[in-house]
């Protein structure tokens, strides 16, 4: 790969992950990031973030844990077997 190009994406062609989510979820992610600042690469807008690829898995789990504390939807139907 030749000399650095003017409009290179942040360090040479590094794979990132674009996250699209509701603003409420985004604010949780921003909060999770504020601990170590190791997740978010770029805060794009209300519903979009770019994060490090290797952090996506743990981010999903942290988010799930956080939501479980507050939110528990009901089963739509009890099993009658």
């Amino acid at each position: 790969m030749g000399p650095p190009l003017a409009a290179e994406p942040d360090p040479p062609w590094r794979c990132r992950v674009l996250i699209e989510c509701e603003p409420a979820i985004k604010s949780i992610i921003v909060h999770l990031d504020s601990v170590n600042n190791d997740i978010i690469i770029e805060d794009l807008d209300e519903q979009h973030l770019v994060v490090k690829e290797n952090m996506v898995h743990s981010l999903k789990q942290k988010l799930e844990d956080r939501l479980r504390e507050t939110y528990r939807p009901e089963e739509p139907l009890a099993d009658s077997d």
Partner: peptide, 26 residues
């Protein structure tokens, strides 16, 4: 939906263009 709080797409971010034209062209 209940489970998918966010939609993820792997790819590449382009920023810090020299000019508006360059941004628009790319």
């Amino acid at each position: 939906l209940e489970n998918e709080r966010m939609h993820t797409t792997a790819g590449f971010l382009f920023k810090d263009f020299d000019s508006l034209e360059e941004y628009q062209a790319l």
